[in-house]
Simulated scan of single mutants.
Amino acid sequence: MPHDPGGVLFIALGLVLVVAGSLWRGRVLRPLSAERARAAVTRDRSRNLLRAADMAIAEARRQAAQGEPAIVTVGDVRRTACRHYGYDSVGREEAAAALRRRFEAADCRRDCMTDAFN
């Protein structure tokens, strides 16, 4: 009974890949460094605080009555960051900086008020 050359070739290729994988042993090309991990955490926190400021601004605009300015506080940003991202401690200066950036980016001077500039 003759063997199928395609099947034998498929099995041989599989064995070659298994041997190559066992020799390589899954080594990481770039090991995780503590410095890169800290930088990633800092980037994520900064981005999440900006998102929390956006959410606080949007919520204040929704709650404002017709013709009244929306009032967004640093405390709103801190509460939103805690509620949505689980940050237990967000400093007032850190939250105020995020709120100032988003306040100016969203052109809030025409319809919002904030204590972030105090």
Rank of each mutant, 00 (worst) to 15 (best):
V77G: 03
L17I: 15
Q63A: 14
L50W: 00
R110A: 08
F117R: 10
T42F: 03
L29R: 15
L9E: 13
A20N: 09
Q66G: 03
A12G: 13
A37D: 10
S33C: 07
R100H: 02
A81T: 09
G75C: 02
T114C: 03
F117C: 10
N118R: 15
R25H: 09
G7P: 00
D88L: 15
G26L: 09
R83K: 10
P31W: 03
L29E: 14
F117P: 06
D44I: 04
E93K: 14
N48K: 15
R83Q: 12
A37R: 12
V19Y: 08
C108H: 05
I57Q: 01
A58E: 04
R45K: 15
M55G: 05
A70L: 03
A64E: 01
V72M: 05
L29M: 11
R79Y: 07
V8K: 13
R79C: 02
V16T: 13
H84K: 12
V28G: 05
M55E: 10
G86D: 06
R62H: 12
R110Q: 05
E104Q: 07
A97H: 03
L15Y: 07
A52D: 02
P5I: 02
Y87T: 08
V19G: 06
E35W: 11
V18D: 05
R47K: 08
G6Q: 14
E104K: 04
G86K: 07
A60V: 04
C82E: 08
N48A: 13
G91R: 14
S33I: 07
Y87K: 11
V90M: 06
A12N: 14
A97N: 05
S33V: 09
A56G: 05
A37H: 06
A34I: 10
R61L: 13
E94C: 08
A34T: 13
D4A: 10
E59I: 02
A64S: 10
I71V: 14
R109N: 10
E93S: 15
R47W: 06
A105E: 14
D54Y: 04
L29T: 13
